[in-house]
Design a protein around this nucleic acid. Sequence first.
DNA 1: CGTATTTGACCGGCGC
DNA 2: GCGCCGGTCAAATACG
Length: 312
Amino acid sequence: MAEKGSQWTRRCGNDAVEDIFVNEPPLFFLSQEQHHRLMPYEDSITNKFVTSTLYSGPRIQDIANALVLVEPLSHPVREISKSTVPRLERSTLNKVDKYTLKVKNNSNGMCDDGYKWRKYGQKSIKNSPNPRSYYKCTNPICNAKKQVERSIDEPNTYIITYEGFHFHYTYPFFLPDKTHQWPNKKTKIHKYYAQEMNNGSQTQEESKEAQLGEPANQNQPVHKAQENTPVNLEDELFFPVDQCRRQQGLLEDVVAPAMKNIPTKDSVLTASWSSLSSYTSSSLSPSSLCWSPNFDIVLSDEILELIGSRKF
DNA sequence: CGTATTTGACCGGCGC
DNA sequence: GCGCCGGTCAAATACG
């Protein structure tokens, strides 16, 4: 009875997330000094990779790109002065854990932001004819959530509020491609995931199944995290940064090409993970919002205010 | 039949 | 304390 819900709650609750962070702080949570000590090879490549997995929201370059792309459009929600962009440093953006995008979709096609979401609620909002839908990332160790609602003023515009990081990019899917030789540049992955690798290489579909698999498997990462002793460098396994692969594309990987209206291999691939049949014109079912050549992304006032109010 | 979605109940924060 | 409201849960239902 309600076993699925209980499992989900147990694995996705704050306790589980905290356990992971306390016992296995991801690389990006290490201080710069710690990080450099652990990763003497650390350089721009590693740094870029680690940083990019920290925050699934728009990067500073994405914002800059968006500015360029939004400006030619007729009705941007708000035009940002280019002079403000240099003040928005990467470190600031990485601390933004909640942000809003407004996505205008003028086509009949669906949209997909590249993640696999599980809808867990829908509420009617006071003074709004449009319901708001609530989604969680389907990866059980991920705390990312999003809310989606149709704009009151602009029926073709969806307001998507993202909250939380996609933790699973920093943990389970730093998996190497076994068909390649290891180069010199290395990054570490944890024993648990190395063990997981030894059980067989995972395809994307297999990874997805693993996330949604049996309760025993679901609990494994959390238990491992709780049992693990502090990091022992000699016990760690190292894998090359550029051999790492992701199970799903980061939003930032999808947003940038989408803003350029260029369908990419990745965006096509990830679109297939959404349940496209759920969409109806009368109710909002935005687990499938598809990138099409006819929409544009603008930064809402909320995110601009949020970024601007951050202390850094 | 397994998985995803729907939807009313429930909960906690907040203002009065 | 009470009611409102946004957010979450979970049983029921729909779907492939």
